[in-house]
């Protein structure tokens, strides 16, 4: 038991200590942004990303730099990444929405499945980490009540009620966590980053053109075939697009 405790403590410490970012590079990138050298800023922010470090402000600033540089597709891509890490950040939401208005093609008549949109609205302002730890805490509380009840044999009305309530809470929170995970991580989404992104009816350039995409449009990747992705647009239209024209987030 002692060995286990030590092991846990070590792993806890090692994990919380893994990421200490190089903030000097970040400060330098911000300075370039202030001096309106957006290309240089993009380069520096990307350099931080290449050291395998991410954060919501980093993605946000990178999105801003791309937006200022006139690259709508990448701007929206990084705003989406930022929003996934910090869904309740108003600045990120604002800039994402602002940037999306510049897309020359607007997706209208979007009708989501009502159940999906209800669940999505419930978890909208929380990120996955928050939800995961929330369900973890309830799980631990639930196990504690079970230990008291079954392991140690305590038996009173309050404990019995506690077991039931915590079980229900656990089902709800873990359900929402699973939904969030599936919705934002398991579903492969991408942003069109290229101008004149033709969407074909089949996985070849000889196919008919289904529609013409524009930078900033968000698509869901359904499948792939050679150089093409089969993508689903928000307005439920689908088609095939060349892999290089979109970027996954």
């Amino acid at each position: 038991m002692n060995k286990l405790t030590v092991f846990i403590l070590i792993s806890l410490l090692s994990i919380t200590a893994t990421v200490t970012a190089d903030t000097s590079l970040f400060t330098e990138a911000n300075k370039q942004y202030e001096q309106k050298d957006y290309s240089k800023a993009i380069e520096l922010y990307t350099e931080i990303l290449n050291t395998n470090i991410e954060s919501a402000p980093l993605y946000f600033n990178l999105g801003n730099a791309y937006f200022k540089n006139g690259d709508l597709g990448h701007a929206i891509l990084f705003y989406m990444k930022a929003k996934r890490l910090a869904p309740d950040d108003q600045a990120i939401r604002h800039n994402l929405e602002f940037a999306q208005r510049f897309s020359s093609v607007q997706m209208e008549g979007v009708e989501l499945n009502p159940v999906t949109s209800f669940l999505a609205s419930l978890v909208d302002t929380y990120n996955l980490t928050f939800l995961a730890w929330g369900s973890s805490i309830i799980f631990i509380l639930f196990i504690i009540t079970l230990i008291l009840r079954l392991g140690m044999g305590y038996n009173n009305a309050m404990l019995r009620a506690g077991v039931v309530i915590l079980l229900l809470l656990l089902m709800i929170t873990s359900g929402l966590t699973t939904f969030k995970y599936r919705y934002e991580y398991l579903t492969k989404r991408a942003v069109i980053i290229a101008e004149n992104a033709k969407v074909f009816t089949g996985a070849s350039e000889q196919s008919d053109i289904e529609l013409e995409g524009a930078p900033g449009l968000i698509v869901e990747i359904l499948s792939e075939s050679a150089d093409f992705y089969n993508v689903l647009f928000e307005n439920k239209r689908r088609g095939w697009i060349k892999k290089g024209l979109i970027a996954e987030f």
Binding site: T20, T23, N52, I53, S55, P57, L58, L128, A132
Partner: peptide, 26 residues
């Protein structure tokens, strides 16, 4: 657009999924 942020904030390894991290599992 809203202006850039000064602080890099909480950082983490790229694409680290909390559900798959050892600490969460432990």
């Amino acid at each position: 657009i809203r202006y850039i942020k000064d602080d890099i904030g909480d950082t983490q390894p790229v694409n680290q999924l909390i559900l798959a991290s050892p600490i969460y599992i432990i």
